[in-house]
Write a protein that binds this DNA or RNA. Sequence first.
DNA 1: TAAAAAAGAATGAACGTTCATTTTTAATAT
DNA 2: ATATTAAAAATGAACGTTCATTCTTTTTTA
Lengths: 194, 194
Amino acid sequence: MAALQKSIDKRNALIEATIELVNNDGFHATPMSKIAKMANVSPATIYLYFDNKQDLVNKTYIEVKSRYTAYAFETYRETMSVEEGFEVIWKRIADFKLKEVADAMFLAQCDNTPMIDEPSRREGIKHLQPLLDLWARGKAEGIIKPISDYLLYAYSINPLSFLMLVENRGAIKIGPQELEEAFQAAWSSIKINR
Amino acid sequence: MAALQKSIDKRNALIEATIELVNNDGFHATPMSKIAKMANVSPATIYLYFDNKQDLVNKTYIEVKSRYTAYAFETYRETMSVEEGFEVIWKRIADFKLKEVADAMFLAQCDNTPMIDEPSRREGIKHLQPLLDLWARGKAEGIIKPISDYLLYAYSINPLSFLMLVENRGAIKIGPQELEEAFQAAWSSIKINR
DNA sequence: TAAAAAAGAATGAACGTTCATTTTTAATAT
DNA sequence: ATATTAAAAATGAACGTTCATTCTTTTTTA
């Protein structure tokens, strides 16, 4: 089987090199030759694993998005209460952005530039479904505000991105206390106050 | 005086073309020749107004950032109460992002990519000073939570960016009601609850 | 009429991708 | 076990294109 013989290590090395170089220089300022060099591979070899540069960055995006959501939902169980579920997911997302800085930066760049094509973008969105389901449950139970998922996301999840951005630029340090405060702010902005 | 003879119209046309093309294709995928064509100018003429491509995009960034903050603080007066001042600024920022979509998109891209060099980035940050001063006053008066400006920004201003992003992608429609709700959420996440 | 501004064509470097060739792999025959 | 071999994988060099920038000439300005 042709595809299976190709080394998964090389593919991974190419993906990791893409993340690092695109984070530093941006998509179009990163030549294929540089990606190849960092992955210890010939430029031509890239084309055995990916159709072209666009395909490489699309597939890198999907891969990183998958890691992100796998991490986010790892400890979440559908049997949890809405509040507990949200706390677990929120804190896992925060952890991911603190620990997997390169991945988080890469996703932020992808989400704010025309770097990724539309089909891959849509593919990436699907991965958040468990959170949307949780919110639907929360609305049904009268625990979560009856507003669009986009608003819920804007209030509770998106602020995390900005926090990590400024942390990574060395502007602030986010410890357990700041994280807990941020979580409380997130939760109280989407829950119904009794 | 050399510089003064050059047409300010041409400079403006170049800036506007840069915004539009970078929004559509990204910085590195936008050739100088295309910018020149859209501005009805020869490629060589760009170099009478800007040192090089990087300088063009840096100056475009500073210009757009200035417009943004000028708009944000237009109706704000230091004599206003903290709450009123915040409401005025917050709603002006929201207006700007709703009405000046191209400018807002451009800033978002600049802030999430390595497109702009560090000096220009720092220059751009300075423009937000009036908001930071307002928050300092609010903290002194015991009205605003005694947390870092970055946290305040993350909770109250940043969610707007995400809202506008999804609005611009056609996912939601933000009317006066959604805006008022979003403002209330922003304000209550940074004010001290008595 | 001379200096500034603008233009279009030219230049050289860098890039994504492909091509021709070599190296590696793994199945088969000895 | 070892040798054979054909296909797959990998390579470095080369190709054609595109781009930022500069050069030379023309046009505009005061």
